[in-house]
Structure formats: structure tokens, C-alpha cells
Write a protein that binds this DNA or RNA. Structure first.
Lengths: 109, 109
DNA sequence: TCCATTAGTCACATTTAGGTTACCACTATT
DNA sequence: AATAGTGGTAACCTAAATGTGACTAATGGA
């Protein structure tokens, strides 16, 4: 949150800094109607490495978009979910997905 | 358009490939209610280099989001505008901007 | 003659994002 | 004593994105 937002006042730069990149929008979308643990997210995103997934989750948490809850169990379990701020992105994520879906369909035709 | 869309079927990957990155959403937004020439865009985006601006415009054109029209004048003039596909992004761009704007305001407070 | 102007390009350097592989802690189960 | 299962981390590497500064063509005007 801190650095990414404060040093600029362009709303696009701000938004893209928080949800841009190859993976963040997908992660947020996966969490948009379920709390999920690390392994579940990884299973639904076969092409992201665990390292990068871990990094992205950390950034999303630092930016206040997702919440991380670690349970003291063996084997360990960690649940990720959207914060209120993250929830506020849901309509935008949906529109991005719809737009992309149309592109895919039009291209195939 | 071609490569970026065809090799995957994830709508987020598609959309982010076309409008992600630090500059593309800003460029599209600047064109969303005006046709503008290269220098005008550059003037409104002081922190992008001319080289990168030129590259981004080429990609946006190749992806079918913007239209480029070169006039045979001296000094040369080139006008950029949104295509219909580009226009279809306007509501999304607006929402991204509004969301980012809120972030900036909340952070300053 | 020389400068200004527009819309770039070229060669090069640097920064950032993302990827690969191996490894760890902790406990239950076999 | 070895293995499985979860959620990671560390060291290292590559490719993509972005930046810098110099340069160009073509012509009108001082």
C-alpha cells in the first residue's frame, strides 16, 4: 500500500501497481467467492510456480487486498481470502474477465 | 492480437496482455475522448520516454485497440484514436480510474 | 545558411518480473 | 526409520520491460 500508492497520483498507475502483472487478477478472482488455502490456489493455477505464487500473495496482503490466516495445525494450513478492499474489486475483475472472454471468442471465430 | 490471445484461454491473461503494463491503460484513457497526436500524448505523460511511448502505441495498434493515421505534411503529423474495440474498453478504464482514485484519496487521509 | 519542428529510430544499459531447482520444519503414519 | 503432506524459503538465472542519449528526414522561416 504505502510506497506503491503514495509516490504518484495517477489512478491508473495506482491500480495497475496493485492488480497488474500476469497473476494478481487471477488470484483475486479465485478468491472472490471462496476462501482458499495455498495448495488449492496452486492447483487451480498450474502454470505459476510456488515461489511466485507465494510472492504475489505476500504483495497482495501487504497491499491490503487479501487476508492471510495461518492455523496452528499439522500439517500447516493457511487460508487466503479477500479483504473488504479486495471485495471492492470484484465488479472490475468480472468486467475484465468478460471483456477478455469476448476477445477469445471473437478471435477463435 | 494474434499471438497474445490465441495461445491461452484465460480471460484475465488475455485482457492483461492487451491493457496491462505501466502505460497502456493511461494511453487508452487519454485517447478515450480525443484523437491526439504523438506529441500531445507525450506531453500529457511526462514520465514515459518517447521510445517506449512509440513501442506501446505500435503494440496497441497491432492489437487492434487504436488507430494510427499519418498525414503527409511537413512537419509530419500522426493522429491516434481508439478503434471500436478500444472504445469497448472505456467503461472498464473508467472503473479502474475511479477505483485507483479512491485508493489515492484513502491513502492520503 | 542555419535553426526549429514532428515523429520517430538506433544502440546500448539497467531494472524488474518471473522461472527453476533444491531444500526446510513439523508431525502422523507405516 | 522412512515417507507423506503442507506451506513455504534460498540461491540462482533468464527474459522482458523500460530508460538514456544521440540521431534522422523533410521543409518553412529568420
Amino acid at each position: 500500500m504505502e510506497n506503491k500508492v503514495e509516490n504518484n497520483s495517477c489512478p491508473f498507475t495506482t491500480t495497475i501497481a496493485l492488480i497488474g502483472g500476469r497473476w494478481k487478477s487471477i488470484i483475486l478472482f479465485l478468491l472472490s467467492d471462496h476462501t482458499r488455502c495455498f495448495g488449492e490456489i496452486a492447483a487451480r493455477m498450474p502454470s505459476i510456480s510456488r515461489k511466485v505464487l507465494s510472492e504475489q500473495l505476500k504483495e497482495l496482503e501487504a497491499d491490503g487486498l487479501i487476508h492471510r490466516e495461518k492455523f496452528k495445525e499439522i500439517p500447516p494450513r493457511v487460508e487466503y481470502s479477500l479483504t473488504d478492499l479486495g471485495q471492492s474489486l470484484r465488479p472490475i475483475l468480472k468486467d475484465l474477465a468478460i471483456w477478455g472472454q469476448k476477445m477469445v471468442l471473437d478471435t477463435v471465430k
